[in-house]
Simulated assay, not measured.
Amino acid sequence: MIRITIYKNSNGSNVGFKTSGHAEFAEYGKDIICAAVSAITINFVNSIEAFTNDRFKIKTGDGLLKFRFQKEPGPESKLLMDSMILGLQGIQNDYKNEYIQIIFKEV
């Protein structure tokens, strides 16, 4: 199962996320859920880098992507983060929470 934790600050702003695990929907290389989550999250990181001036820290590994803004994100970053969450929740809804779990955590 892919576990996604969305980090929120005390102001209610989304300030980062962590994805870990594998969906195990299909064999390696054919897992459409893993591919979709990867595409959405990597596109988010690339979009933040290309379209905003917000700085962030990132860590990657096997089945792991950890992203955190260094300061309060600007309006463009907030919109991009909301869009990423919407896409991930769409996958979660389509596959009935069996392969992907999203939780929100205050940090």
Rank of each mutant, 00 (worst) to 15 (best):
M1W: 01
I6E: 06
S10N: 15
N11C: 14
N11M: 12
N11K: 15
N11Y: 15
V15H: 12
K18D: 00
S20N: 12
G21W: 10
H22I: 10
A23T: 04
E27S: 09
G29Q: 12
G29V: 08
G29M: 13
G29E: 14
S38L: 06
S38W: 02
A39R: 14
I40G: 00
T41W: 08
I42G: 10
V45M: 03
V45F: 09
V45N: 05
N46Y: 14
N46W: 12
S47E: 09
N53I: 14
D54T: 11
R55W: 10
K57W: 03
I58A: 13
I58R: 08
T60Y: 02
T60M: 11
G61N: 02
D62F: 05
D62E: 10
D62Q: 05
D62W: 08
L64C: 00
L65D: 01
F67G: 09
Q70P: 00
E72T: 03
E72Q: 09
G74F: 05
P75L: 15
E76L: 03
S77P: 00
S77G: 00
K78D: 03
L80E: 02
M84F: 02
G87S: 13
G87Y: 04
L88Q: 01
G90N: 07
Q92M: 09
N97P: 02
N97D: 12
E98S: 11
Y99V: 04
I100N: 07
I102A: 03
K105H: 07
V107W: 15
